[in-house]
Design a protein around this nucleic acid. Structure first.
Length: 199
DNA sequence: AGGATGATTCTCT
DNA sequence: GAGAATCATCCTT
């Protein structure tokens, strides 16, 4: 039954799950749970949509080397990279490369499983489907902003829990809103999920 | 110093 | 489906 997730039964995601090609990690993160303790509320959702941003990738923020904004991308795997986009929104990424390499997985959508009231309050909408179905939406719902940039996903306010099982079917396609390397099939969605940001 | 550009979202038609 | 909102960041003068 979707939504019936017992967070206490899930183990923290082992660091080894973040090793390997970034596009493989992006696929592997589907089904894992993202948990936030920011802003005095516990919110959580099962990851249903991700995108990979790797090295030698013109669409990746790290492509032209380190800057003040993308510094977290060059930290160790398991770092949270948060940036602001279009002035008002935020996007959250799981850093995946070894330290010194700028790679990350953008978390694009979650199925809410905990803290629905806090999410509704922060988002200003009622429907569960509208809470976390988009990278900016899920950050708003979980209280994630640039203050959490560079935090550690194993010890920080935002953490990852293992997937109880791999998704039965995964849909693959081009990344959303990306103009460079637009042919790269690095977007991954849980097939059939109502909570992906778009079909 | 100035301008173009977004890994978006919301509203309106 | 199209267009506006909105501003930090980054690249070009």
């Amino acid at each position: 039954m979707p939504g019936a997730v017992n967070l206490a039964a899930l183990e923290p995601l082992p660091a080894s799950e973040l090793e390997g090609l970034t596009e493989e990690v992006a696929r592997r993160l589907l089904g894992c749970t993202l948990v936030s303790r920011l802003g005095g509320a516990v919110t959580a959702g099962v990851i249903v949509e991700t995108e990979a941003y790797g090295s030698d990738d013109p669409a990746c923020h790290a492509f032209r080397g380190p800057t003040a904004r993308n510094a977290a991308m060059f930290m160790a795997a398991g770092t949270l990279y948060v940036y602001r986009i279009y002035g008002v929104h935020h996007c959250a990424n799981v850093v995946t490369g070894p330290a010194g390499v700028g790679e990350a997985v953008l978390i694009r959508a979650l199925e809410p499983v905990r803290g629905h009231d806090a999410m509704r309050s922060r988002r200003g909408v009622e429907e569960d489907r509208m809470l976390c179905s988009g990278p900016g939406r899920l950050c708003a719902a979980m209280g994630i902003d640039v203050a959490a940039n560079g935090s550690d996903l194993f010890t920080g306010p935002v953490t990852l829990l293992e997937a109880p099982a791999a998704p039965r079917e995964v849909r693959v396609g081009p990344r959303v809103g990306v103009t460079k390397a637009a042919d790269r099939q690095w977007r991954f969605c849980v097939a059939g999920s109502r909570y992906v940001s778009r079909k």
